[in-house]
Amino acid sequence: MLHKLNAFYSGTILLAIILLLSITVPLFMTEPSVQQFKYNFDQKSLKIPPFSPSEEHWFGTDRNGKDLFYVIVDGAKYTIFFAFVITLARMLLSFIGGLVFKRLFKKSWVSGLLQGFQFVPQSLIVLFVLSPLLFYELRTQSVFSYTETLLIQLFVLVAVGIFPLGKIIAETADSLSQNEYVTCAKHMGASPLQITARHILPHLWPRLFVLAGRQFSQVLTLMLHLAIYHLFIGGVKITSGQVHDQFNNFATVSNEWTGLISMYHRELMLEPFVVMIPVAAYTVLILCVNVMTKSLEKSFDKRTLY
């Protein structure tokens, strides 16, 4: 059993290490101060940021001279934490909703209405709802404080995912209740509550874990898609890029990775490493979650066979 779950454990350990580093490192390390330039007296050469990766800056710096290693490590916990909270809330609510309204989800008009979520991506819906609330003009204040912003975002991100997920859970529970032993129990006079607790839940649990893993990576993708349109989880700081406001700079408040990717996107053709480092970190995170989910799924598939 253990060696089958190897991928799962290594994924968990990697995630735990990232989280631990991200929580402890900012406690012991202060953010390296910004260096405006580097002058080499021997070669008489002047360097200005972005500095490429070196011993001093492990991941290099961005155009403002911010140390990327510190930013990435600091942002990891927020990224994981946001995605985790959203996933957990979605799973909980749609689990309850899916079981309570199991019959309702089966009706053809309900599934027809839920088709909207099949043809309109979640990111588009979230952008519809949040962009009038959270975007503000340069040199004005956002209507909401950072906590309010965060709460609204959590609310909308959770709400948009409940319906499709609830449908999946309801369908799974329904297919489980088609089993013969459930019919038997019904004839013996078991109440719906009893049937759910005794016969459906034990089979539903493992699938819920797999679903949660998939949701987690979906939420991460959703966060990235929102961040591309400058809707950062936790809030955005808008500053002017140049004297005449030719362009705006959008910065994340929390250093979370998806926000960093979007923030450094402009560097893609200039200094690719600045944007590729957050992209690599984000890729590792998603890869980790997906590999964990896959191995979980495989081990549960085997268990149901025997």
Binding site: G112, L113, Q115, G116, F128, V129, L133
Partner: peptide
């Protein structure tokens, strides 16, 4: 056709969602 009609109505419902949240100032 029925499915198409339901899709249509769900899109209308989705497109109107911002007005559910956004008041004159704030939520």
């Amino acid at each position: 056709l029925q499915q198409l009609f339901l899709l249509c109505s769900s899109i209308i419902l989705i497109a109107a969602v911002p007005s559910f949240l956004a008041g004159d100032d704030g939520i």
